[in-house]
């Protein structure tokens, strides 16, 4: 009897605890991977239950946010980046916050920046060594016969690295020249894949494909070493940092307009910028932390950090990206048939 009383008391308390704990709905892209103990710690310290909701890649996530703006499905969103920010802002789905500005940190106007990285070309070292082909030195080299059928890119209409790469070429060359460049690339046999996974795991020669150059991230060579059984001493891939082929992607978090728990949502954003999470981000999501002075895992020595990049500003992206993607699709996909 005593036992029964105790257990029922405990379960009542537990139930009460559960129902009273506030709930914070966090919308993220599918690559979200902050360590579980860190999330549990946040829940404990703030008496909140985190509801992480994954909504596909960054593009899909923003579209789902826009579709449900009348009845928001989340209180705070993480993973929105500078390619999508303008679209989200124009649709009015975010609550603009005065961001904490620290000089030298990549910014994401309209949201709070959390991490950043670079979309660029990776190449298969073994392939180039075996063929004894010199590496291309400029983007235009990729349109020469020597480099025919060597490149795979992601479709900018369905992939955020694909869009980022297109944007960097436009930023570097201007729209007209960039589109002419893409037409030449098409004639030189560029392969277009649906998304990063398809490009990297079925087309890239490192993973059984036929193409030794792929649009990926500047941290990918480090990840190749990190996720290798025999702990490689050098990466099988490396960055090909051609001028005009590096895009700086800044990811951030923001409050969702019409969401609840604004105070907790702000705390969560601050938590994402805390030292513990910032230290976890590099090897869990393969992005660089925005906070200065965070020591990186030694594996990052295998990833050459780009010194320069060509990235259009957010307003430019917001105003033109749909038109650019439409033009690109007509030139590369539709007229190629």
């Amino acid at each position: 009897m005593q036992l029964f009383k105790t257990t029922s008391l405990i379960s009542a308390l537990l139930l009460a605890g559960l129902s009273h704990a506030a709930e914070l709905r966090v919308l993220t892209h599918s690559s979200f991977a902050v360590a579980k103990p860190l999330l549990a710690q946040f829940e404990q310290q703030n008496g909140v239950k985190l509801n992480i909701i994954k909504a596909g890649d960054a593009g899909e996530m923003v579209n789902k946010l826009i579709l449900t703006r009348a009845n928001p499905i989340a209180d705070v969103v993480y993973g929105i980046d500078n390619t999508m920010m303008g679209k989200a802002a124009a649709a009015g789905v975010l609550l603009p916050e005065p961001a904490e500005r620290k000089p030298g940190q990549p910014q994401l106007p309209g949201a709070t920046s959390i991490d950043y990285g670079y979309v660029t070309l990776n190449y298969d070292k073994a392939w180039f060594a075996k063929k004894q082909l010199p590496l291309p030195k400029t983007l235009d080299d990729l349109t020469r016969p020597a480099y025919k059928d060597l490149l795979v890119v992601e479709n900018p209409a369905t992939s955020s690295p694909g869009l980022a790469f297109l944007l960097s070429t436009i930023s570097a060359m201007g729209e007209t020249k960039a589109m002419a460049f893409w037409a030449k690339l098409r004639d030189n046999g560029v392969k277009v894949s649906k998304g990063w996974t398809e490009a990297y795991y079925t087309d890239f020669s490192r993973n059984g494909g036929a193409r030794p150059i792929v649009v990926s991230y500047a941290t990918s060579p480090a990840a190749e070493v990190f996720y290798s059984k025999e702990k490689l001493s050098t990466s099988p891939t490396a960055n090909l940092l051609l001028p005009g082929a590096v895009f700086q992607q800044v990811e951030g978090a923001a409050l969702v307009k019409g969401g609840q728990q604004a105070a907790l949502a702000r705390k969560f954003i601050a938590f994402l910028r805390s030292d513990a999470v910032q230290k976890d981000i590099p090897t869990s999501m393969w992005m660089y932390p925005v906070q200065p002075g965070i020591a990186l895992d030694p594996v990052f020595q295998h990833a050459e950090k780009p010194a320069a990049h060509s990235t259009p500003d957010q307003q430019q992206i917001a105003a033109n990206s749909a038109g650019w993607v439409g033009k690109w699709t007509r030139i590369v996909l539709k007229s190629g048939q």
Binding site: S30, S31, F32, N51, I52, I53, K54, A55, G56, K64, I73, W196, T197, Y200, Y201, N207, S216, Y217, S220, A223, E224, F226, Y227, S228, K229, T237, W286
Partner: peptide, 29 residues
């Protein structure tokens, strides 16, 4: 896979996609 998902609802299908979403031989294997 088109629906919203939660980390605690991880299924084999979503896990395969998750692994294929990162570079590295271990993830492919």
């Amino acid at each position: 896979t088109l629906f919203l998902s939660r980390p605690e609802w991880l299924t084999l299908t979503t896990l395969i996609y998750q692994r294929l979403g990162r570079p590295g031989a271990d993830n492919a294997a």
